[in-house]
Design a protein around this nucleic acid. Sequence first.
DNA 1: AATGAATGAGGTTTCATTCAT
DNA 2: TATGAATGAAACCTCATTCAT
Lengths: 209, 209, 209, 209
Amino acid sequence: MEQENIGRKEREKLFKRAEILSAAEELFFHKGFTATTLDDIAVKAEFGKGTIYNYFANKEEIYLSIVEDFIHKFIEIVNEADKESESFKEFIAAYISRLYCFCHDNRVGYTLYVREFSDINIDTVIHDKCAYFDRYPQMFQPFKNRFDKAQKEGIITDRFDIESIVVFVQHSIFSNLYISINGRRRGDFDCRHEAELAVEFILNGILKK
Amino acid sequence: MEQENIGRKEREKLFKRAEILSAAEELFFHKGFTATTLDDIAVKAEFGKGTIYNYFANKEEIYLSIVEDFIHKFIEIVNEADKESESFKEFIAAYISRLYCFCHDNRVGYTLYVREFSDINIDTVIHDKCAYFDRYPQMFQPFKNRFDKAQKEGIITDRFDIESIVVFVQHSIFSNLYISINGRRRGDFDCRHEAELAVEFILNGILKK
Amino acid sequence: MEQENIGRKEREKLFKRAEILSAAEELFFHKGFTATTLDDIAVKAEFGKGTIYNYFANKEEIYLSIVEDFIHKFIEIVNEADKESESFKEFIAAYISRLYCFCHDNRVGYTLYVREFSDINIDTVIHDKCAYFDRYPQMFQPFKNRFDKAQKEGIITDRFDIESIVVFVQHSIFSNLYISINGRRRGDFDCRHEAELAVEFILNGILKK
Amino acid sequence: MEQENIGRKEREKLFKRAEILSAAEELFFHKGFTATTLDDIAVKAEFGKGTIYNYFANKEEIYLSIVEDFIHKFIEIVNEADKESESFKEFIAAYISRLYCFCHDNRVGYTLYVREFSDINIDTVIHDKCAYFDRYPQMFQPFKNRFDKAQKEGIITDRFDIESIVVFVQHSIFSNLYISINGRRRGDFDCRHEAELAVEFILNGILKK
DNA sequence: AATGAATGAGGTTTCATTCAT
DNA sequence: TATGAATGAAACCTCATTCAT
């Protein structure tokens, strides 16, 4: 009985936290970090301004929580793609198609993540905190391993080192995904088609054989 | 005589304007738009704060002027590459190598341009103003023409429409260039080598033939 | 039976009240009134924040209760010294030595009392409420009587009125005691020695006879 | 001509600074540090709130400036008393009478100084900054030297060390002066009379010889 | 009686922009 | 034309107090 009570409170707390995050996400997405005020968030979340501070230490922490969420999900995707595919080609295809579909459904989270992660946006502060870079290995190791193996097996070019290739590929994917999702033609966005293009581009380049 | 006077004044005015832009560029690059104050700019440019307003209507216009400058130069590069190359391959190689070298030497301007142009940075406000998108045709038309022709000649894949391909390629190049220039391994940046990688990647993909 | 019950409850209530006061005392002492938050107090007292309000109307009342406690004890000291001493000299000696020892053991309470009573600290609000000054007679009357008598008996100077002398003496004692207890040399604090110095200073001045 | 111009601006700046300090002084005196808001100060000084920040980095710095001013003047007083008196008795009398008169005329500055300096008030923050204690020697050295010499010459008691005596005397004087100036009988305050009482008390104690 | 989530008034500080000199 | 003092809106954040459970 008591346990049940604790459970409910806990659940309520999490629920409200999620409400706040959801409101903030939307605002950050449309107005950016600096331009979004705590008042905005409070109003949209339908809480008092002070209440927000019972759930997050400050504005930045709200932003970070959103990005953090995305990272967790991203890691899952990479691992799933890794597990469920045999060959290098299959892995690339699996990874890209999963990523494209997932990000299509989680446009806002993905966008905020990229803004932070891209080194392009200076608006938020996380930048200075290296905490982030600690996640890199977890995020990209499976990816690297696959490329490493593929290079050793002679499947992919050996004219450049693995680090360069992974970086190039990863950024091509991310930036194009970003554009597809947020760009001016986003209305047309078709997961499958875009993923296909990306896979083909990555695997075969644009020149006909 | 009077004309001569005006000429000197005009020249002085332009010179001072450039001084301000130069100071601002540096600051925007390191601190971002929001975090850079007009005081910062005034101090660095060694002008009074009020003086800045004799040259620019407001802080935003300063940022825009910098980006505008980059766009002019970018257009030149595209046109030059277009003029001086015969085949599609040559064009791609010429465009990429010119772009990489130019941006390497103009890291700051390029970075600010990308921040603005990428749709990733929401820190500045230009976003809302479509003025920018008017420059797209001028910037990318030659590029599009080349791809169009190449597709018609059967040189590049016809599995996707030209718009998609150009966007994908352009963003791959831009995002990778950005990372090369600003990323954590930037110390190693070697124009030629990076350009080579990009060219190869664009033209042949990563899979061995 | 019911009475007995009430008795226990009453006792429990007083006990909890004391717990709160004790926690608050420590905090007020170290951080001052303004800087001490109700959260601080609740955490330290190990009660819910709301619970505090079942025992005290507001933050200020907590502070006042502490000071009030000190006043009660102070009055006892004055009265004891009065009862147990014959001559004026004995009284001064008894009063000072008791006061010094007591305050040495009740550093926190004494300090809070002085902060409030001294008119020096404006941090708290009690100032406006004259309630305090009502206690003055009770606190200092025995003292005054002794000085009055001593002056009439020609033991102490008659060049100044009693009020002036009492004020001067009392403040000399209090301020020096405060410094001794809280000052930077407090480690060395030796009740007896400090009391001796005070007694001698009060009774004979610093000039050799 | 140019020099004259600079002079005027400089003078104006100092004048305005003084205006702000004067307004702040009054407010700090009546309401204390915490309770005085920057709005209060701005309104009273008849400046915009932001203007205050062109003269002082923050609220604390305003307070410190006031106290600093007092310290300068206090040092002057000690030195003057030192120069213009021969014997120990003369020095004490000169010091006390000067101090009493000066503080009577500068009640507010003195009060704020004591609040900060007394270790009683925790409201302000200076406390933490040891910067203050650096001024001690400059402030009290002449005083110490006089007492030292007097003790060696056998004029004052040798039953206690100089440090103890100086501390006791200094605090007696300061606290009584404070009370005289700010206490409830302050209306009656008569510089000369109060100073006389203090001198007599310090030099001869309260017991008749 | 005990709790602590919710509240929002109120505080300090920043900074783009104006304008009198 | 050049200046920089003045401005005040607006931002973030704190915390005493209330109140539903």
